[in-house]
Nucleic acid binder design. Structure first.
Lengths: 204, 204, 204, 204
DNA sequence: ACTTAATCGAGACGGTACGTCTCGTCTTTGT
DNA sequence: ACAAAGACGAGACGTACCGTCTCGATTAAGT
């Protein structure tokens, strides 16, 4: 891992023997992502991944010591790019971010991923870390940016804790997804909740 | 199910044959609850439940078609009683409720239950319903009661949506449990977050 | 069983309670005999007998302690009456007896019965005894009778052991049924074999 | 099987994948043969075979689709070598063959095997074929050889059907084993019966 | 060209748990 | 007291995956 001696590793010395097949690498990750979205984390068997990837079981186990590692790698490839809106109004900036997040969070893959994260939160915290890094972090930063601009425009109090604000939004989206606390549609509920939160932070 | 016509069903006619053993009922539910807390939902096998309950496998399958049904019944028996505090101050009332909730939510059984709820939220929504009914509902009502009293004392605005307030608290507790957004202790973070929320709702 | 003696049973004291249903008795034996012929001894389950007889399992177990006892009783009811032929010639007498025996021994019920007898010959010798009594004994006596008449007509030597002769015939019928030693039809083989035996016993 | 084409199939190409463990092969067959002799065909469970062989259940099911196939293979391995006696006298030659056969046929394994053969003679004729090939055939040939020599010595008629003679001997041994027709010991009865048969075949 | 060595597919291995089946017994209500 | 209905403990059934292992066949890199 930590190779301080640079002279040796300058030209990545190939190990002897047949190199790993990159075709197999991609096939495995692709099959794992598909199955994850289709049947979920628990029901996904390594055997099924091997079958779909057209690869043998040991070829998977040579790369990943467990289903968790495989899945962690598979979801890591799902890159999240978040455009930071700048409409001149906090309300519309937030609406823009929410629209994307709401759509994303309602896909089966997102549901499965969330389920998996929480299932294994105790035993395998790496999922939560990956999710926090890959998914939450860009959105946290986007929220931070638009909140800062709103402070500059004096729309909200300067003392407002950006991270806490984001945590509340993220938390209530999670919560509502699971428990469906009201009869109204998911999107309407979330928008109402965020207005509530903004009202509390608003300058008066 | 609930047949209002009492005259007909007055004397619940026993079905023929040997009745189900209530000893077995309890033993199964008890063993399931224990194992759930010990090894978690996924690792809990029907076989192990049967062994610990001193009951045969078919005796379990006669009652429950799947592990999910069994577990749903097992967690349904875990009754939640919430005392509604009345200290004369919203802040201390909330502190009192939070203290209990924070303690509860950090036990292994609660973690396992939450994990299971979310894992199966899509496929088996009954878990979420049970949890919402058994766990969240009493707390939602307690929050409603103390918020109403706070409104009467003019501590918070009368227009504050009690349910939404509770959803935010519940949501951020969930969220923080999973993602540990800050380095500070869980309890401190939650208390800080709730103060943030109260600040927004406060009368000015 | 034998309740002819009236002096002892003069006042046939009815036992208390509901008397055993003779309808059930017959239904059980009938169902057992049918299933025995259809699926064989091993595959015949008490459960299936109960179902077909329209009777509950304990009702059967109240009468018979085991499947063996039930089956023993069922086959005991299959009475065997053998007419002793008297045509004036040993050869035609034997042909007559053989015709009937060959036909009988090739029915599925007979095959199943034989299989059962031998399966349990070590552990449950009562089957072999019942079969020997109900099936073999009348034929042994018939053979004895026609052989005696043949001796009187000086067709075979007077010293011929009737029982041994019968055992050989019975034995080769059994043997050929199981192992099909030749390509020729069962009946032709048996007749050829008996002529061989008669040739050895014939007076010269 | 039929490898007429020598050029192509000369070097039997190994199938891909890990080869079956011959250690497991032998352990399974050994355990099956032991259990067969100990508890009988019906009471022998695949589970018990797996346990005794130190092998998992799927390893057995990979090789044999049913208990019948397993047992057929197990009894096929029980090789029967019969030495053909040549004492110069038919009577003593036969005595020698009988002695071995009588001893063999009275062992528990032989009883169990016979029972199984006949139990399944209708449904699974492969047992009877295996028994006929492995057990009866060598003895049939031995009898054929000593009878031919007896004919050369003019002890018995040249027209005597060797196979039929053997069938009678085999048949009466079977028959006597099952029905015990006399009070005398098995061996004495068989020897008496064979003398009867020889008397019929003798040259006069 | 030839060795070397890690890869590949295929599939068997000992395990564990699955959900089902039938066994013979037990326990209730109703006759 | 018996009949019926059906639950019970017990335990085998045959199947599905687990993660590991053993093969023969490839596939480069380093001789």
């Amino acid at each position: 891992m930590l190779s301080g001696v640079s002279a040796e590793n300058e030209q990545t010395k190939n190990p002897p023997g047949r190199p790993r097949s990159s075709r197999a690498d991609q096939a495995i990750l692709g099959a794992a992502a598909e199955l994850l979205a289709e049947v979920g984390y628990q029901a996904m068997s390594i055997e099924a991944v091997a079958l779909r990837a057209g690869v043998s079981k040991p070829t998977i186990y040579r790369r990943y010591a467990s289903k968790e590692e495989l899945v962690a790698d598979a979801i890591e490839t799902l890159r999240q790019e978040v455009a930071i809106p700048d409409t001149g109004s906090l309300q519309t900036d937030i609406d823009s971010l929410l629209a994307e997040a709401i759509q994303m969070v309602q896909t089966p893959l997102a549901r499965q991923t969330m389920a998996m994260i929480i299932s294994s939160a105790t035993s395998s915290p790496q999922f939560a870390r990956i999710y926090a890094t890959k998914y939450l972090m860009p959105r946290r930063e986007a929220f931070g940016a638009i909140l800062e601009r709103a402070k500059a425009r004096n729309e909200i109090r300067a003392a407002t804790d950006n991270d806490l604000f984001f945590d509340f939004v993220s938390g209530i989206m999670f919560h509502a997804l699971i428990f469906e606390p009201t009869a109204e549609p998911y999107e309407a509920y979330i928008r109402r909740a965020v207005r509530f939160l903004l009202g509390g932070a608003a300058v008066r």
